[in-house]
Design a protein around this nucleic acid. Structure first.
Ligand SMILES: [Mn+2]
Ligand SMILES: [Mn+2]
Ligand SMILES: [Zn+2]
Ligand SMILES: [Zn+2]
Lengths: 142, 142
DNA sequence: CCTCTTAATGGTAACAATTATCATTTATAA
DNA sequence: TTATAAATGATAATTGTTACCATTAAGAGG
C-alpha cells in the first residue's frame, strides 16, 4: 500500500499533486490554482489552499515558507537547499548536496530539539543580471 | 562621522533603533509599534513600517523574511544563523559560527550571482517541548 | 525672525494573501 | 435507500502590508 493510498485522494488532490510532480518547480497557491483549474474548471481557490495544507500535513508535498512574499509548494521531498533571486523572486533547487555537518552542528549547543535546517542562498538570477547590467550600460550612455 | 549620522534620524527612527538595539531580539513590525508607542504615543503603524523599510534599506537594521508569518526585524548586523520554534514561532540567534564552506559552496556551480545565505534551523523550543510532553502525559493518564 | 521648499508624519483607505464559514455535493457504509 | 461524515465551491472575514494625502516639522536663505 503506497503512501498515496493511505489518504483519501479526491480528484482535486490528485490534480494538485500532478501539478507539483515535476522537479524544481515551486509554484505559489495561486499558480497551482491557475494550473489545476485547466483540468478542473470548477475547483475553488479555497480548496487549493485547504488541500495544499492537507498534503503538506501528511508529508506528500513540502511547503516553502521562506521569502517575504507568497508561500511556495513543491513535490520534491528530498532534502535540498534553495536559491532565490532577490530581484524577481524566482526560486530553484540549489545544485549541491546538503551539508551533513551543518545539520548536526547545534547538537548539544542549545536546548531546542532540532528537526530541520532550511538553507536559502540569495542572489541574482542570470536574467536579472542581464537586465541589471543593461540598465547600468544605458545609464552610462545617457 | 558614524553611520548613524549619515541619515536624518527623526525621533521615530531613533526610538525604533533603540527598540532593536538589544541582541537576539527579533520583533515583528507590530511588536516594534507597541514598544515604540510607549515612548512616542502618537507614532503611527505606517511610520513604523516606513522606517523599518528605510532603516533596512540603509543597512542600519536587518529584515528577516523567513517564516510564513510576519516579517521580523533585528539590530544585530553580524552574519549569523537562526533557530525557529515551529510550534510558537519564537526566533533566536543560533549559537554557532556561520560555515565559511557553505557560503562559498555554489561557486561555479550555477549562474546566479550569490550575495547571501540564510540558514534557519527549525525545532521545538524548551517551553514547547515541556508543553508537548505534559500534554502527552495527561493523554496517557486519561 | 520670516518665508519657501522639502521631507517625514499620522491617519486612514486600499490591497493581497490567507483563513473561516457554511450551504451543497460527494463518498462511504449501514 | 437512508444515514453519516467528509470534502467542496462560493464567498465573507481577517491579517499583514502598502499607498495615499493632508498636516506638521525641519532646514536654508534672506
Ligand atoms: Mn525545491
Ligand atoms: Mn538574529
Ligand atoms: Zn531574477
Ligand atoms: Zn516554542
Amino acid at each position: 500500500m503506497n503512501a498515496y493510498q493511505k489518504f483519501k485522494m479526491t480528484p482535486q488532490r490528485i490534480a494538485i499533486m500532478n501539478c507539483l510532480g515535476q522537479r524544481n518547480l515551486h509554484p505559489t497557491a495561486d499558480e497551482v490554482f491557475q494550473a489545476v483549474r485547466k483540468m478542473l474548471p470548477r475547483i475553488s481557490l479555497g480548496t487549493v489552499y485547504r488541500n495544499l495544507e492537507f498534503l503538506t500535513g501528511n508529508g506528500l508535498i513540502k511547503k516553502n515558507e521562506q521569502g517575504g512574499g507568497q508561500r511556495r509548494y513543491e513535490g520534491n521531498l528530498e532534502k535540498h537547499y534553495h536559491i532565490k533571486c532577490t530581484s524577481c523572486g524566482r526560486l530553484e533547487d540549489a545544485p549541491i548536496e546538503p551539508f551533513e555537518s551543518l545539520e548536526n552542528s547545534l547538537e548539544g549547543l542549545c536546548d531546542y530539539k532540532i528537526f530541520e535546517c532550511q538553507v536559502e542562498f540569495e542572489g541574482l538570477c542570470p536574467d536579472c543580471q542581464a537586465k541589471h547590467s543593461s540598465r547600468t550600460n544605458s545609464q552610462a550612455e545617457a
